[in-house]
Amino acid sequence: YADWIKACGERKVEIISEQQTGDFVGMYDRQQLSLLKETGAQCVTDPSPETYEQIQQVASSHRIALENGAVYMLQNKLYPSKKLALNENLTEYVGKEGRDDYMEFVFTQDEAGNWKVYNEKYNKWLGVTGQTEERVPATTKADAATYEVTSSATGFSVLSCTKPGNGGIPAIHLAAHGHVVPWTSSADASMWKICKVGISTDLDSVLTPAPTAQPVRIYDLQGRLVKKPVLGGVYIVNGRKKLVK
Rank of each mutant, 00 (worst) to 15 (best):
Val106Phe: 02
Ser157Glu: 03
Arg11His: 12
Arg63His: 09
Val128Met: 07
Thr129Val: 08
Leu203Trp: 06
Lys241Asp: 02
Thr212Phe: 15
Thr140Val: 04
Cys195Pro: 00
Ser186Asp: 15
Thr150Ala: 08
Thr21His: 05
Cys161Arg: 08
Glu67Pro: 00
Phe105Thr: 05
Lys196His: 02
Gln56Arg: 11
Lys163His: 07
Thr150Pro: 00
Lys245Ile: 10
Ile64Ala: 05
Lys141Val: 03
Ala175Gln: 10
Gly223Ala: 10
Val206Asn: 01
Glu97Ser: 15
Pro137Phe: 13
Ala112Pro: 00
Met103Val: 03
Asn68Trp: 06
Val25Met: 01
Ala59Tyr: 10
Leu66Tyr: 14
Ser151Ala: 15
Asp3Phe: 13
Tyr102Asp: 04
Pro215Ser: 09
Thr91Val: 02
Lys77His: 08
Phe105Asp: 02
Leu90Phe: 07
Leu225Trp: 09
Val117Gln: 06
Ile64Asn: 00
Ser48Arg: 12
Asn87Val: 10
Gly155Ile: 06
Gly26Pro: 01
Val237Leu: 05
Ala59Cys: 04
Arg217His: 10
Ser81Ile: 09
Ala176Lys: 10
Asp101Arg: 14
Asp46Ile: 12
Leu33Tyr: 03
Ala175Gly: 07
Ser61Gln: 11
Leu66Thr: 08
Val158Tyr: 01
Leu90Pro: 00
Asn89Gln: 14
Glu10Pro: 00
Gly165Pro: 02
Gly130Thr: 14
Gln131Trp: 10
Lys6Gly: 02
Asp204Arg: 11
Gly69His: 13
Tyr79Lys: 09
Tyr1Thr: 15
His179Trp: 13
Cys161Asn: 15
Val71Asp: 02
Val230Tyr: 08
Trp192Val: 09
Ile194Cys: 02
Lys12Trp: 07
Asp188Gln: 12
Cys43Thr: 15
Met103Gln: 15
Pro182Cys: 10
Gln20Asn: 08
Ala85Gly: 05
Leu35Met: 11
Gln20His: 07
Arg99Met: 04
Ile199Trp: 12
Ala210Phe: 09
Tyr147Lys: 04
His62Gln: 09
Gln32Ala: 03
Ala65Leu: 13
Glu67Asp: 06
Gly127Ala: 10
Asn68Pro: 02
Cys8Thr: 10
Val197Ser: 01
Gly22Ala: 06
Lys116Thr: 11
Lys121Leu: 13
Leu86Thr: 09
Thr91Ala: 04
Ile55Cys: 03
Ser186Gly: 07
Leu159Trp: 12
Ile172Asp: 01
Met191Pro: 00
Tyr1Leu: 11
Tyr235Val: 13
Lys116Asn: 05
Leu174Pro: 01
Asp202Pro: 00
Tyr28Ala: 04
Pro47Val: 11
Lys196Met: 03
Gly113Thr: 09
Leu66Glu: 03
Cys161Gly: 04
Tyr93Phe: 15
Tyr235Gly: 08
Leu86Asn: 07
Phe107Pro: 01
Leu207Ser: 11
Ala41Leu: 10
Gly168Asp: 10
Val230Arg: 15
Lys12Cys: 06
Ile15Cys: 02
Ile16Met: 04
Lys241Gly: 03
Gly26Phe: 04
Arg240Tyr: 14
Glu88Phe: 12
Ala65Cys: 06
Gln54Thr: 09
Thr162Arg: 01
Arg240Ile: 07
Asp23Cys: 03
